[in-house]
Design a protein around this nucleic acid. Structure first.
Lengths: 260, 260
DNA sequence: GAGTGGTCTAGACCACGCG
DNA sequence: GCGTGGTCTAGACCACTCA
């Protein structure tokens, strides 16, 4: 006999969901439901989601349970809590967390807001996925993909040369003008124009020598080592959505990583 | 009139602590107290700390408040929770999180437990801090420091060459035998023998060419680019405790980084 | 079965932002 | 002054570990 009636004892489901396996705490199920709404664009990047109390009512759970679900989503940078205002869908357009995935910083001074990058689009075309690109993006070889090549310069110095591959299906209609013209992070443009939000990414780093062409675009010699950065970026649910292969000059910048 | 008497209204202090500035939640103060005990070795790495209920009693707060403090410390990898068993002081000797700070992984297969590193100590001596080393370790130029140089090999292939600088005062008596003989992570040895636990670190990465000597130890040519990794590791309270300058071969391995 | 961490609830109050 | 998130409490029950 329980003095406090738990509306959803153990693995039961009020909101309309069921699990088979081990045991899923209520707040995890709530988290899943919120995640589902995020994926399906019920609330757009930058917008506020309903208040904790309202969500608690909707899901028939206590505010504390909703809170724990939101806490985790905020910890994963999917939501952003602002005391006194509400909880918001995170976006790459935020002033504070702009270029969250770019770990290259100038050797002197850490002020990233200072010298903003200038973009030069060298190429932007649609083609068929090669075997390795297809594998990375979970496509089939020959599927349509978009490829862009660009140079990022800081204070007029070309510093990053990168190739970007995107699934052609999702990014239908992306143009060089769009890549060049948008003010702010490219990932913010992806959110605005294609409803695709990059949530996390894996990077593989290597030291390499550039070939003739690469050296040319970076205004260095072929005997200047550069940092090769291969990034695979994911949207919700661990779906890979972008492959990037970049070369970073590290004579005036360095790649900064925080371990904990 | 409050129906529930909060023993420490707002910024008051039960456990014996006071703040001047803005406003410090109770659980933050509790966190500080636990942190203090960790720093002063009240509980050693690997040991269990008192149960939540016991700590709640000691600090005269509710279990929930202690829980939130511990949650944050666990999130920072200072504590490790194990359901049914207790909460433990984190250590670099844990099987699962061994080499947590080493981000170099073999290109094929991610099984880090497989091919364990073989250490070769090339050098281990005491000397006086140069200006840059002193600045990094928050010492004064000329202060005693320990310096070690070693090669890490995987499957017999020399892959990492690194120099390590440590404050001579704290690591008095560290010998080459100790560096070479210890089984397991070097950071675990630091915990055991010197009571120093590395808690977080910053790394700066660059692509460089090795000089003659470096190339020799890594069994490569001077025209093979390598990854330069400068690491500054901190113990509790953001006190810098170790400077490492490593060169990583990236022909068979890569530096893996997870962004989120 | 005792003890530990993990979940869930309900309710009170606080800090913050904004009209 | 209201609404939002943030803190704190007290208590019940669940899941896990180990003797």
């Amino acid at each position: 006999m329980s003095a406090m009636p738990p509306p959803l004892p153990s693995t039961a489901d009020g909101p309309g969901l069921s699990q088979a396996p081990a045991f899923s705490p209520l707040y995890q199920q709530i988290k899943g439901l919120i995640l589902h709404s995020l994926q399906h664009g019920e609330w757009k990047p930058g917008e506020a989601i309903p208040s904790e109390i309202e969500l608690a009512g909707r899901f028939r759970v206590s505010q504390g349970t909703v809170r724990k679900a939101i806490d985790e989503l905020a910890g994963e940078n999917l939501l952003l809590r602002r005391q006194g205002k509400g909880t918001f869908v995170a976006t790459h357009a935020e002033r504070q967390v702009q270029y969250r995935f770019l770990k290259l910083v100038p050797d002197s001074g850490d002020v990233r807001g200072e010298a903003r990058a200038q973009r030069t689009i060298l190429e932007c075309r649609r083609l068929r996925a090669s075997a390795d690109v297809a594998r990375a993006l979970a496509l089939r070889t020959g599927d349509p993909v978009l490829q862009a090549r660009r140079v990022l310069s800081f204070s007029g110095v070309p510093t990053i040369l990168e190739d970007i591959w995107l699934p052609g299906h999702t990014f239908k209609g992306l143009s060089a003008e769009q890549m060049a013209g948008y003010q702010g992070p490219t990932y913010a443009m992806f959110e605005m124009d294609f409803g695709v939000r990059m949530v996390r990414a894996d990077e593989k780093l290597r030291a390499v020598l550039p070939d003739e062409q690469q050296a040319h675009w970076l205004a260095i010699t072929t005997s200047t080592p550069v940092l090769s950065v291969e990034r695979l970026a994911y949207t919700y649910n661990d779906v890979p959505m972008e492959l990037r292969r970049g070369l970073y000059r590290t004579d005036t910048h360095h790649y900064h990583n925080q371990l904990s």
